[in-house]
């Protein structure tokens, strides 16, 4: 019952958040300079065609009317069509306004769904890498506060967080792909193309994990139940794994919920560097081309993921530690 209450409350809150996000992005894209109708038909089209297109898209209606219409489409799962990208995947940049290839535009939802698996693969692998990098450093630091392990974690965290991800990407690509020829780095033709970008992302998020782990483990090791654990006949490795790490995983989960935005932001940049055909490259190209429906769709989609994952994080935390309330 409590669970149901919690879910209903959080989902409602999430919907409010999504409503605010969608309105903010919608309004933002309407006030910036640039006439969507002109963008769609191209610079060479006569003015009548532009006017006709604007009428067709309902661009002359007040913003609120346009927004409500957009919400209506959204509720039916329709995120609109791209301004530029045709269904076939070919570019229409140079085609004349009456070229038939300009007519069939790709649906934003399809464009997103097509790319989301690759982006999730990248994000997932980077979280795995980040945990592999952070666990030894963070746990060792947490178990030995003030000793060299602590300093090592502190210093490596400070260096990792100072590494600009795009630069690290360029340097590693140069080193591993061009000099050594071990790993591919441009485009996507198989799983191995995910490794370098995921590693770059992992370096970006590991400082936060190292820090959270070392702080929370150091704190937990002072708790009474850790002090009495040896009296219960538990060996140290078991104490560390079953008690310290298990309890430290809750702040870690919360951190994941909060840092998700940073992870996704990093994904965009890293995808651009490695020419990785995921959501990030789609978004950045859409921004550079002013393809408003795509920007809008991606922003709402990402916010939805963010809201969903944060609900999931709270649920998971309460399963790990039943003392927590919903």
């Amino acid at each position: 019952m409590y669970l149901l209450n919690f879910l209903i409350r959080r989902v409602l809150q999430g919907l409010v958040v999504l409503l605010i996000v969608s309105f903010a992005i919608f309004a933002l894209l309407r006030v910036v300079p640039g006439d969507p109708a002109r963008l769609i038909v191209g610079g060479m089209a006569p003015d009548e065609v532009v006017v006709q297109k604007a009428e067709e898209l309902g661009l002359n209606d007040p913003i609120v009317v346009q927004y409500v219409r957009y919400l209506g489409d959204l509720a039916r799962g329709d995120l609109g069509n791209s301004f530029f990208r045709p269904k076939s995947g070919a570019t229409v940049g140079a085609a004349a306004y009456d070229d038939p290839s300009r007519n069939e535009r790709a649906e934003v939802l399809d464009l997103i769904l097509e790319r989301i698996p690759l982006t999730l693969q990248l994000a997932g692998l980077s979280v795995v890498f980040a945990l592999i990098i952070s666990f030894p450093l963070g746990v060792a630091a947490g178990l030995n506060p003030g000793k060299w392990q602590d300093r090592l974690a502190f210093f490596s965290g400070s260096v990792f967080v100072s590494l600009p991800n795009f630069w690290l990407g360029i340097v590693l690509a140069q080193l591993f792909s061009i000099k050594l020829g071990i790993l591919p780095s441009i485009g996507y033709k198989g799983f191995e193309y995910t490794i370098l970008p995921a590693f770059v992302l992992a370096i970006g998020i590991s400082p936060f994990i190292i820090r959270t782990l070392s702080v929370s483990i150091a704190q937990i090791m002072h708790e009474e139940f850790i002090a009495v654990a040896p009296l219960r006949g538990l060996k140290r490795p078991r104490i560390v794994v079953a008690h310290a790490i298990r309890n430290a995983s809750i702040p870690l989960l919360n951190l994941f919920g909060i840092q998700l935005g940073i992870l996704l932001g990093g994904v965009l940049v890293v995808e651009l560097i490695f020419d990785y055909p995921g959501l990030g490259r789609l978004t950045i190209n859409a921004v550079l081309q002013r393809d408003f429906p795509i920007i809008q769709g991606v922003a709402i989609f990402i916010s939805a993921i963010f809201v969903f994952i944060n609900i999931a994080v709270d649920l998971a935390a309460s399963f790990i530690d039943p003392r927590l309330e919903y």
């Binding site: 996000v21 932001g265 920007i295 916010s303």
Partner: peptide, 13 residues
């Protein structure tokens, strides 16, 4: 709620 909304859009976008 505005804070939540703002947090859920990556700054870079």
């Amino acid at each position: 709620r505005i804070t939540d909304a703002q947090l859920s859009i990556p700054m870079i976008i």
